[in-house]
Design a protein around this nucleic acid. Sequence first.
RNA 1: GGGCGCAUAGCUCAGCUGGUUCAGAGCACCUGCCUUACAAGCAGGGGGUCCGCGGUUCGAACCCGUGUGCGCCCA
Length: 878
Amino acid sequence: MAELPKILDHITIEEKWYKHWLDKKYFKSTPDEREPYTIVIPPPNVTGVLHMGHMLNNTIQDVLIRKARMQGKNACWVPGTDHASIATEAKVVNLLKERGINKKDLSREEFLKYAWEWKEKYGGIILKQLEKLGASCDWDRTRFTMEEDLSAAVIEVFIDLYKKGKIYRGVRMVNWDPKGLTAVSDEEVIHKEVNSKLYYVQYNIADSATSTAEDFITISTTRPETILGDTAICVHPEDERYAHLKGKHAIVPLINRVIPIIFDEYVDKEFGTGALKVTPAHDINDYHLGIKHNLEVIDILNDDGTLNEKALLYIGEDRFTVRKKIALELEEKGNLIKVEEIKNKVGYSERTDAVIEPKLSMQWFLKMDELSKPALQNVMNDNIRLIPDKFKNTYRHWMENVHDWCISRQLWWGHRIPAWYDEKGNVVVAKTREEALTVYQEKFPNLSASLSTLKQDEDVLDTWFSSWLWPIAVFDGFKEPDGKDINYYYPTNDLITAPEILFFWVARMIIAGYEYRKEKPFSNVYLTGIVRDKQGRKMSKSLGNSPDPLDLIAKYSADGVRTGMLFSSPAGNDLLFDEKLCEQGRNFTNKIWNALRLIKGWEITAEGENNNEVIFIWFENKLELLKENLEKSYKEYRLSEALMDIYKFIWDDYCSWYLEFVKPPYGDPIDKQTYQKTISYFEELLKLLHPFMPFISEEIFHQLKERDENTDICISAYPETALYNSEIIEEGEKIKAVISAIRDTRNKNGLSPKQTLKVYIQTKNPSIYHKFAIAIQKMANTHALEYTDKDINDATSILIQTDQLYIETGIQVDIDTEKNKILEEIEYYKGFIESVEKKLNNERFAQNAKPEIIANERKKLADGQSKLNTLQHSLSKL
RNA sequence: GGGCGCAUAGCUCAGCUGGUUCAGAGCACCUGCCUUACAAGCAGGGGGUCCGCGGUUCGAACCCGUGUGCGCCCA
């Protein structure tokens, strides 16, 4: 037998087994008669690279899919990538800039050519990286949201919803990203608290003959540059300070525009001066005031955040430059009264970090009110389960206050909106130019347009407008609505994703599911936490606090990192990542590896007796208990708990107890039965472990035994649960306590483990000790146990449950120490008995408590009294 | 400003219907061991005002109220 290396070479086995699994097509799935188990991957950005969030997310998916596969289900994990329009376009723009090419100088076609080139070259790196993690995706099914079929689905859905009257075009206040030059959705705006200045600016009153101190009004604003777009001043109707201004007008400083003073309850009398300047083009609340009071709308900004000619002043200069300059000018002219430092929240673009500018623009919207109803209902009634369910509240709140979805983006990379305009701006929606013309001629019989005069909308659709179709589209549910795949795999089982995209993505997939399949897209949504660093900070590139997952895998093995990720990440809780967790995972692989080395080092005798029967029974029952607990944990998606249970079981029960029990003395052979039992337990544990640690479990599975060509743990049957006897398990626990007590005594007296001790046992129930006598002797290194009904002097006495152990240490027992020890215990039990008696004597307890609880209390009392007697007896002997 | 959630050992978290000797796990820590599978290890051990206050109950880490601190989402 070849000597196994002390430390497992994980890199070699990871490569070997992953290739083997692929060669064997174990991850491949096609519809058959088996029950399907389906997961669609949350498609990472095509330009993305693997980060810690992906590691957590995909480890969880792999655990679930591998377990389902072993349980005989037809497991299908569909991988793929998302075109991520704004993020990818930004990357391509930057890349071109580095090469001296400006996007503005390119035509749409030229730009897209570069973008596709770049996508072909760098896109999908992330999927290759997932292989390193051991992800058992069906790679033949890899999809991309901008591939032909998926794009066709997006266009089809757009046209369908348009025809249903759900999609409309309108001028709305949108979140404008002046850097990305596009509108972004509400969800893509991040509000940050920042230090700002609150400027107090004085406006003169127009309709006044005199110019006394009464004849001006002071407003406060954090954005003085927008003064140039002011079209009203607003005060509260009950604010007496301004009652005299009813029907009057104010003059905008610097540009001398005359604007009305209006009254509305919207104004907060307490904030600032209680007077508000109204700029309907540049603030959402002002916009609504503008509609209500029929105000003029003056948009003073260009798309890139510079001022336009409508501003009259500072034309072409950036909004933030103007803010400083205008403050100075107002001061010079005497209009600036004071400046206060305040904290307020400012919206930033998630993608470009530019300050979001509320902007009026023509956009496409999807009406959400009707569409969202089944999506709300089916989450609230648990037809779709959110895990953990605390997210149900958040979900409901969002769905009940849902806004129409702005689905157009001013970008090139993405699905171009299938809308066509004639020269006057009349619009039709159709798949192609030709179809558009036909539709046009039907819709506008009195107008004329030709193929060449129809112009397609320049904008593309929001990325999420394609990802919301993902669970349907990856099974070609649009192309072939009654196809084999969609009918078999849909609805999928579990979706694993981050809570941050619960609304972006999850809610919308549910909406699309009910709209297009009349059926939920998945049954369970497992929401992972955010991976943070030790200090609780979100991992980010700019902070540089995110380790490279591939480095971690190289250092700690894929299995080590997988378990590291899961050790402390209950669903929905953030994971405070610490490399130590991976180290712990790696150490665990080492532990398992060394168990193998021990077993492989044994020489087997053909025959041979053993005394291990009781150990086998104990261990087998304990193993059943473990399996039951694992099933419970899986059912509740408590993967950390399941992993921890296996971890402890392998480390403690199997290695520290079982193997130590049965291990023959050095150099001695092992009997065949024990060997076979040991191997079969190990094998079963490896199967339980496989979903978490696929590589080492596969390697050891093959090291344990010669396997034929088609036998791999990856596709072996997951162990079934069976009944167990908890009495036997408890007996085992008691014996472990006895052994630990003897070891502790040895330790505390500074005795060597090599010194064999004499132990006497005083018990009413010696049969357990008889059963486990050999185990105790071996594990605690004692002479043959002796039973006594007398007290032994000059020995350390220890109480285990109701049994008394006497351990002869050969060292003079210090009577006072012993006495104090016993007195302390007596005090404890006295108090304990008292409290139980009190409870039992309480009439209301007797009336109200359940019978089994009362029985339990009685037992506690009896046990306590018995222990107290033993202790008092021991004390009297000292 | 509106909504949701959290607070248990040094750290990360369990504690499921209020009732086991219920206060637990892993890591960290302390003591002793290079004991022929493993020092990436072995054996043993210590550690808590269950955030404060009030209430409900025979009984509260758990239910209710309130205060404090923190986090997230939305405006």
